[in-house]
Design a binder for these strands. Structure first.
Lengths: 220, 220
DNA sequence: GGATTTATTTTGACTAATCAAAATAGCGCC
DNA sequence: GGCGCTATTTTGATTAGTCAAAATAAATCC
């Protein structure tokens, strides 16, 4: 059985290799897990010996098929738990990430299946992150971000990729939540600042960095 | 913060000291935790150094006020989770114990409070075990068991104290669940066998050992 | 293209929790 | 009141995961 530490390493390798299908550098992995780099090296070598990752010394790490299977399981548990906390327990979507982080290592398949059924087999969690299926399929649709999308066109927020509670509360306070309608009125790359128009003519200013973690689709 | 192992030691000291308010022998504790006796000794000495238990070498261990507070917290989480699994997720009451064993160490107070409210602040779990309050009060009402109660009188099962799935399935198959009506038709101590009359004139045979873990009250 | 900066790995040490097996202390028993 | 049984404690070792700090390799920069 995978320990909690092993599950966390695999989950973060998966998350950090999203999009960039390349090797995940050890430094990034160590930072994500909040351990010193040497610890990550030691652990990754052990995971490689177990066949869960492949390690290119000095360059980085990537999941094997088996490691990816395990990581997708953890991610599925995490996102279903987040959905449950919001939909059933009526918790705030800006604070459920940390809770799910704990529970994801303790919930059994039997309980998870019940939860999934109770929630109606949701496709995304409250942040818009796709939930891997039980068979290990992860929707990898690519969206534009508020930092890269066209100007002026009406858009819908589909996903917020950034887990910190402070960031999410900042977003929530400005109406920047999945499902919300938004238009980019102005984007000043030099100043790193965007002006957004929300529904009801509300105007909101966000940094370029923040805009990059808000994914959007045409309002169709 | 208490680790999972620490929480389990404290929880089991609490459970084993129920009724017998005496010292819990190390052997019993080790058996309950499924560790060798030497391990229990080592750990108990560490817990004593932390002020969570008091250890009388060669005689046994008991909780301090602080240790009891922690243990009651774990027990509250365990029993509320069991109740949730049965009431909300519709799982079988005979199989939720093992699930709760895992989740009890991972659930936060914030989530637990929501769960408690959703369930309507239940007083007992699906086995009839009392749920400690948030303030750390544990109902310690003493009941008769089927092994000790009066014969022939109509009774109501209030609690099953025995956690193993096999035992509980045995009980469930015979209608021996909390709330059920029962009467002890015959009790043969020499043979260690009881004959019970359930509602609908159903006759059930149980061992004296099994009867001892089924608590009853007058059918009022 | 050698010197410097930066990321990564190595080394040595530590903590929590465990086991196996030897040592010891109560306890009951004639 | 010593003998032996049984529970408990000690001792020595192991595993998983971690850190601090030294060593090393890759990349960058005149």
């Amino acid at each position: 059985m995978a320990t909690i530490a092993v599950e966390n390493y695999l989950k973060h390798v998966l998350l950090l290799s999203e999009g960039a299908d390349d090797l995940v550098p050890m430094g990034e992995l160590a930072a994500a897990l909040d351990v010193v780099p040497g610890t990550a090296t030691t652990m990754v070598k052990a995971l490689a010996a177990e066949g869960l990752v492949s390690h290119r010394p000095r360059y980085g790490v990537r999941l094997t098929a088996e490691g990816r299977r395990v990581a997708l399981g953890v991610l599925r548990r995490h996102r279903l738990i987040e959905t449950f906390l919001v939909e059933v327990l009526k918790m705030d979507w800006t604070e459920v990430h940390a809770e799910a982080e704990l529970l994801e290592h303790a919930i059994s398949d039997a309980v998870l299946d019940r939860l999934d059924a109770l929630l109606g087999h949701p496709a995304t969690d409250p942040h818009g992150d796709p939930i891997p299926t039980r068979q290990g399929k992860l929707d990898s649709q690519v969206y534009a971000t508020l930092a890269t999308c066209v100007l002026a066109k009406p858009l819908r927020i589909v996903r917020i990729t950034e887990q910190s509670g402070e960031f999410l509360q900042f977003a929530e306070e400005r109406g920047l939540r999945p499902g919300a309608s938004v238009r980019v009125a102005d984007r000043n790359l030099a100043a790193g600042l965007l002006t957004l128009k929300m529904s009801g003519a509300r105007t909101v200013a966000v940094s370029l960095a923040a805009a990059g973690s808000i994914l959007v689709a045409p309002a169709d």
